[in-house]
Design a protein around this nucleic acid. Structure first.
Lengths: 253, 253
DNA sequence: CAGTGGTCTAGACCACTCC
DNA sequence: GAGTGGTCTAGACCACTGT
């Protein structure tokens, strides 16, 4: 049966369950269905009239649930057509989580990438902490070199839990950046990304890789993207050649 | 008289005005009253019942307007008390626009600042472009040096239009960072900030100021905070000593 | 207690989309 | 035209805040 609490707030006081508002219950149910992919991306939701029936509530109550889901970006609603589960890749990149290649594309420059190495090994402390793993837990580590118009521009170290379908990352990190892959290929719902930035001297090894003197300054950034569920999806260390690339973000509020 | 369109969509076709939804008209009116400070920060709005009367609409229509204003962060609504115009400083810093000092405070370190110079002169091209001013238009320029526990940490160049009450910035930029001043002292409603980051060699002059060798790497960032109305409030160039400061942001979606 | 916002119902008419 | 979401009304009861 599909019905909800049945207004169970009146009778003998329910011992535990807090009797949440109807619209919140409907919202939570739909939300779960979406996050656990029982309602896959692009799927049309039942019409408001159908939900009214199914849940046994008035239309306004259904709409309040849908409005909040829309505000969270989980669904989009089109007049005359219906409500649909958002495709993660279509969701507007509000805060600009655009990755490396995406930025280049909008500037009309040609990005490319080479995988230097792929392996699985114990997580370094900083990666383990960011990913909330036990120190030394196994992680996949991919090192890539990204170029712009043939010139080395960034040296990237990506760490991620080798479970899930995430191993396709290793195959494709050379062509696309991690953010795009997570959204478009793995259908993760990116919610926010923790970014930090400093500068470092290139040093001998990174200098050779990036084609700059050992004392050249590099932009050193870390990225940790999080799911809508709060899960840290990966940890990425990036060294940028400042003459080739400037990082830009629009931060809201 | 306070009434709205009076459902003017039916009769003889209104020539221009597009007959926007009632709640949108109410929302727009309140929004303007808030942005133009006819409803000052902290002010209690009329109750929903009063607005129902004043605008001649149903309560749900009033609430739809208020809900959207709340979603935009312009008002906050407290059960049993009423709706109030948000104080910019109270609004949650979602995307983390926390400035320099604020970050230090949460880390328990002591920040301080010295004003190196204050003057008014023609805007450099990059500042004029960011602030949407005519090239060479007069801007105030303040140079400050920020220290952490007595060690130089950042060299800051701030440009802003010398109009408005903004000149109090010059007096206080040494003690507080610009973001905080804009919100707390000038009651601007920050909406988003354009940030960019690269690395540079310190060079001789900046090296002397910050107490590092001329070939030391520095984190070079630019900040342009925008109003809710889309106005660029200032332009800021910052050179950070990487051993003293790492920039962190949480970017949403 | 009176006043406030929070939730909900049962209708209604409209604009839009697709057939 | 039938089906969809967008807007709106006129009520109602509740929980919370103040006195």
């Amino acid at each position: 049966m599909t019905h909800l609490n049945d207004r169970a707030r009146s009778g003998a006081d329910a011992p535990a369950a807090a009797a949440r508002p109807l619209f919140a219950q409907i919202k939570a149910r739909l939300r779960q269905d979406i996050l656990e992919k029982r309602l896959p991306a692009g799927q049309k939701l039942p019409s408001e009239a159908q939900m009214q029936q199914a849940f046994g509530v008035s239309r306004i109550t259904v709409r309040q649930a849908l409005n909040e889901l829309q505000a969270e970006g989980l669904i989009e609603t089109l007049n005359g057509k219906g409500s649909f589960v958002t495709r993660p890749a279509d969701a507007p990149r509000l805060g600009m989580l655009a990755g490396f290649n995406e930025i280049l594309r909008t500037h009309g420059r040609a990005g490319a990438g080479h995988t230097l190495s792929t392996r699985t090994g114990p997580a370094p402390v900083r990666a383990a902490r960011a990913l909330k793993l036990a120190p030394g837990a196994p992680v996949s580590v991919v090192r890539t070199l990204r170029t712009i118009d043939g010139v080395p521009a960034a040296f990237v170290h990506t760490f991620y839990e080798p479970t899930l379908g995430r191993d396709i990352l290793a195959q494709r990190l050379a062509q696309e950046d991690a953010m795009t892959l997570l959204e478009e290929d793995l259908d993760f719902r990116l919610d926010r990304t923790q970014i930090s930035a400093t500068a470092v001297k290139a040093g001998r090894i990174r200098g050779l890789l990036l084609g700059v003197p050992a004392d050249a300054p590099l932009l050193y950034m870390r990225f940790v993207p999080y799911d809508l569920t709060g899960l840290a999806l990966l940890y990425s260390d990036v060294y940028f050649r400042p003459d080739q690339f400037t990082y830009r973000v629009m931060v809201r509020r």
